[in-house]
Design a protein around this nucleic acid. Structure first.
Length: 483
RNA sequence: GCCCCCAUGGUCAAGCGGUCAAGACUCCGCCCUCUCACGGCGGCAUCAGGGGUUCGAGUCCCCUUGGGGGUACCA
């Protein structure tokens, strides 16, 4: 059996998009599931859109999520170069060959003529298609123009009649009328190919067996088939993927919102959680209710038949939940290590037991960025209203809260330790003695210490966390507020 | 406008002619509990509409509607 070779071919135009990353993932999985090769190719044929540093983002992202490529610009391979701008000569050679084969022709039309054609099409409310103006040029005329140094372009020649059918592994067989296809530019006047040409040449030369890409290429696929046929090349297996949509149903865009991998990563989403989540956006293992998959497990379970045809909405909410699950699966120590940078950023107060804080936060954090909102009260007690002490379920009132805080201030003042058991053993007898419910003592303490509706941990936890001095200060503040 | 694709709850989705139409997120209850969270239990909610085919249709066909994509010397 022939070895499976797939390629991820991003263009270095900026961020690594979530949709892009998912394409990379599936591309990787399809190859690796069959023990094949995963290749990285940089499609930089549009110099206008080139963004400095974008290639590094691509490398970093793939590395971070563990999609290691077998061939690529950085590591080489048998079929290089893997950067399209370095393959310029190859495209020219094949473009000329295609002209000889009758699958393409030189075109000398300038922008003005093309624009007027486009305007006319607009007026007539029809789709613009190149009118074949230069198709009738004789060989001699073409030679003369070339010799005169006229700028040119090479266009694909498409039969006026008939139909073209192609088969996609996800969408099945699709047939279009040739008359619907535009004779698009294959080789631009700057000598570089368009995507429409380069993808065919490179995929063939690099022996790509499965072409995986977003479904936005579905409508141009017939043209690629025509190209393969003209060269007499084998047509690869097409795998077009449903698009990922934003909430509200629009195509995911890097401009709006935080749809890039980098953004989520920086917000404290774990690469393995992101991979797991997006793997399930458009693909389902079927026959199992398991939804947690490591990259290795995805490789093992991934099959084309699980691919969905319809677009999927990216649900940050569910990503958050899944990320939270991944965080909770970590050990306390691992979580602590991940949380530390955030503590450094948001907590300057001394004497805070950060390890305790991590234990308290571990089940309360879905994305690491949540830490900020959880720890803000440590730095400084927020402004809060006395009514916060009133809690129906805890059976607290302004009055009994004041009593409890006074008592707490009194007994805690004598305490020098920060030990949980000792604090517990000091507080609870007092509660019993006062004849009140636990919550009637602990809710006021918790409230006075945090100044918030909710906090990571209850009254005793916060006492230990903040330490004696700060705790007493805040309790006193609460008392003042209640007087 | 034209061409192509898609259509199960708010979202991700299983289903592949015959089951009470799985499961997950969200939301809502209850339990646990010194708040919240975690965890446990339970609940609300889906086959877009209309025609066919068939003994029988979420599953097959057609139309309508809705959504998405394409329509560049961008990918």
């Amino acid at each position: 059996m022939k070895e499976i070779r797939t390629r991820f071919a991003p263009s270095p135009t900026g961020y690594m998009h979530i949709g892009n990353l998912r394409t990379a993932l599936y591309t990787y999985l399809i190859a690796k599931h069959e023990g094949g090769k995963f290749i990285l190719r940089i499609e930089d044929t549009d110099q206008k859109r080139y963004v400095e540093g974008a290639v590094e983002i691509i490398y970093n992202t793939l590395k971070l999520v563990g999609l290691d490529h077998d061939e690529g610009p950085d590591i080489g391979g048998e079929y290089g170069p893997y950067v399209q701008s370095e393959r310029k000569d190859i495209y020219l050679e094949y473009a000329k060959k295609l002209v000889d084969l009758g699958g393409a022709y030189y075109c000398f039309c300038d922008k003005e003529r093309l624009d007027s054609l486009r305007e006319k099409a607009e007026e007539e409310k029809t789709t613009f298609r190149y009118d074949g103006h230069c198709k009738s040029l004789s060989k001699e005329e073409v030679q003369a123009k070339l010799a005169a140094g006229e700028p040119y372009v090479i266009r694909q020649r498409i039969p006026k009649t008939g139909q073209t059918t192609f088969v996609d592994a996800v969408y099945g067989s699709i047939t279009v009328e040739n008359s619907e296809l535009d004779e698009g530019v294959l080789l631009k006047s700057d000598g570089l190919p368009t995507y429409n040409f380069a993808n065919v040449i490179d995929d063939n030369l690099m022996k790509i067996t499965h072409v995986i890409r977003g479904s936005e290429y579905l409508s141009s696929a017939p043209k690629y088939n025509l190209l393969y046929d003209a060269f007499g090349w084998d047509i690869p297996t097409y795998v077009h993927l449903p698009l990922i949509m934003k909430e509200g149903g629009k195509k995911l865009s890097k401009r709006e919102g935080d749809a890039s991998f980098e953004d989520y990563y920086n917000k404290g989403f774990l690469p393995e959680a992101i991979i797991n989540y997006i793997a399930l956006l458009g693909w389902s293992p079927g026959g199992t209710e398991e939804e947690f998959f490591s990259l290795e497990e995805l490789v093992e379970n991934f099959e084309l038949k699980g691919l969905n045809k319809s677009p999927a909405v990216f649900d940050v909410n569910k990503l958050r939940w899944m990320n939270g699950e991944y965080i909770r699966k970590k050990s306390t120590e691992e979580f602590h290590a991940m949380a530390l940078p955030y503590y450094k950023k948001y907590i300057s107060a001394k004497g805070i037991d950060l390890e305790l804080l991590s234990r308290l936060l571990h089940t309360r954090v879905d994305a690491l960025e949540d830490i900020q909102d959880h720890v803000d009260f440590i730095e400084k007690l927020p402004e809060y209203d006395a009514t916060l002490f009133v809690h129906k379920k805890m059976k607290t009132t302004l009055e009994n809260s004041l009593d409890s805080l006074k008592k707490a201030l009194e007994i805690l003042n004598d305490l020098e330790t920060r030990d949980a058991d000792t604090i517990h053993n000091t507080l609870f007898p007092a509660i019993k003695e006062m004849g009140i419910k636990n919550g009637q003592m602990l809710w006021p303490i918790r409230t006075a210490l945090s100044g918030k509706q909710s906090s990571p941990g209850g009254g005793t936890d916060l006492l230990i966390l903040l330490g004696k001095d700060e705790s007493l200060r805040r309790i006193q503040k609460g008392i003042d507020k209640l007087k």
